[in-house]
Design a protein around this nucleic acid. Structure first.
Lengths: 297, 297
DNA sequence: TTCATTGATGCCTAAATATTATCAAAAAGA
DNA sequence: TCTTTTTGATAATATTTAGGCATCAATGAA
């Protein structure tokens, strides 16, 4: 097949006008060029598409068949071009979003909801993962943007803080500290702690451990759980206490008491992080949205 | 849009290979030509389709969207070309077939059935019309082939006889001739006749009238009906007699008696007639079929 | 008949597309 | 660290394709 879309557009014009000169006018070319192009097309197909006399032009049955196909094809081309440009510009597309327990317990749900309202053509595909895993998936191109626990040092990536959480100590209602208004970290030195696996909760530990260390102790972790819900469940069962963010209590169980911790330390920050070299228009729209939203707050 | 199917085929090759040189090899062109073509396509769309480094090539989200569309379009093109060629060659298509009462009562049904078995891709579209109307519709291009009452003098058309019918006299069972083995035409001189409208049954009359005239009478037509079934119905009601072909009695009513007519005249012939200049491959297949079929009989 | 209309053809120019040779960047191996 | 290899991009040039203008041949209308 050595014909192209040009031939098909020319054919369509002739099939609609049933008149070479008028079709040529409509196409903005000279009539002989059109005659030639149709001849070329017919030779290429090995099929006579028009029955011409000096007085009129009409489609052969094969020409009619080709016309039917041509209509669909030219429409599909326009449609595909339009869609491709939309995806490029970010009007439609899919964004693979990673999030941590802390992010999803905080402001992320309202962020996503607002964005979906503004960009209904963009599908958000959420992936629940700890920070470390999200960073690996970003690098592998499996995720487009991550909502992770900061700080993160990745010079090639852009990031923006979307949330700050004060740490709170969470105890069972029967615990000796349950009715305290606040607590100092050093008072927790001899408690049994429940937390996530150190390798996976690496970024949270990186925030918490220095605080404990300057309070003069290293927390004794007696039990591990894989996520906040699991940790809170174990705390509720009376196995120990934990330190998490305020917002983690959103879906908390009865019988758990949050106690603010007296500290001058920075709160725990949750960041959006993404690769600015990504060629996804949708992601660009999303990050622009995030930046505008954070600037105004 | 200034790109063509060529660009899309090239794009498809690169998208599948994710490697310019291999894709170029597959396409049978040099690698620089391919690089250029993809650049041209990207410029035309205003969209980056591939993310290239010196070490690997991958699709952008917009490129993925374009790939999806391209698949469908290139398939549709192949499909359309294939179908168009098939229609041209006559493998698929539609034939608009006209037929008279005499044709459909005779061998035509078995002809059509056999043809349909041999060419399942070809749709036969039957149109019931008298000879005169069929000839007009053939000229207007509304019919592709007619099965008409001969003889017909149309030098530009091809024709082939498919059937010969002896005329019979048909009377009501109470009629005075009802138990005759045969009858001479002149014995019918004073009968009341039932027939079709002269203008529309022109070709049948052209056969019958000369016979009557040489038998020494002009039939007195007391009632007209539009088709054989109507005529036979009126004969069955006792209003008169008629002269039709043997095969017309296929769907005859009870109480009707056919009586052979003693004559040396030629039987009534039914012809297939068509315009050999028609560019329809399907019609060509059908007429070849008819000719082969008639030659072997 | 003469005239007007219409698609096809010949010839030339311009634009698009291809080829070969070569470059520049980056990963792999010594 | 310094080659070597791999890979896509670029430059210069040839070839193919498309378009324009002038004109023809056929056909129906005045």
């Amino acid at each position: 097949m050595k014909f192209g879309l040009r031939h098909m557009r020319y054919f369509l014009a002739v099939a609609e006008e049933l008149h070479f000169r008028r079709a040529a006018d409509r196409l903005g070319i000279a009539q002989p060029a059109l005659s030639r192009a149709i001849q070329h097309l017919e030779a290429e197909l090995g099929v006579v598409l028009f029955e011409r006399s000096n007085r009129n032009v009409r489609l052969t049955p094969a020409g009619q068949e080709f016309l039917d196909g041509t209509h669909g094809i030219l429409n599909a081309v326009d449609h595909t071009v339009e869609n491709t440009r939309q995806v490029h510009a970010g009007g439609i597309g899919t964004i693979r979003v990673g999030y941590t327990d802390f992010a999803i317990a905080g402001t992320l749900p309202s962020l996503l909801q607002t964005f979906r309202g503004k960009q209904p053509g963009i599908t958000l595909q959420p992936h629940h993962d700890v920070t470390t895993l999200q960073l690996e998936k970003l690098a592998a191109g499996v995720l487009d943007i991550g909502f992770v626990t900061g700080p993160v040092s990745k010079p090639d990536y852009e990031q923006i803080e979307i949330q700050q959480d004060q740490l709170v100590c969470i105890v069972h209602e029967n615990h000796r500290l349950a009715n305290r208004q606040s607590v100092r970290l050093d008072e927790l030195a001899n408690e049994d702690f429940i937390h996530g696996p150190p390798r996976e909760w690496e970024h949270f530990y990186a925030h918490l451990m220095p605080l404990c260390r300057s309070a003069g102790f290293i927390p004794r972790i007696v039990q591990e759980a894989f996520n906040s819900a699991g940790i809170l469940g174990l705390v509720a069962s009376g196995m120990g206490i934990t330190i998490l963010t305020e917002s983690s209590l959103i879906a908390a169980r009865r019988g758990l008491i949050p106690i603010p911790i007296e500290t001058t330390a920075e709160p725990l920050s949750t960041l959006a992080i993404w690769n600015p070299q990504s060629l996804s228009g949708s992601v660009a729209r999303f990050t622009e949205f995030l930046q505008a939203r954070m600037a105004q707050a």
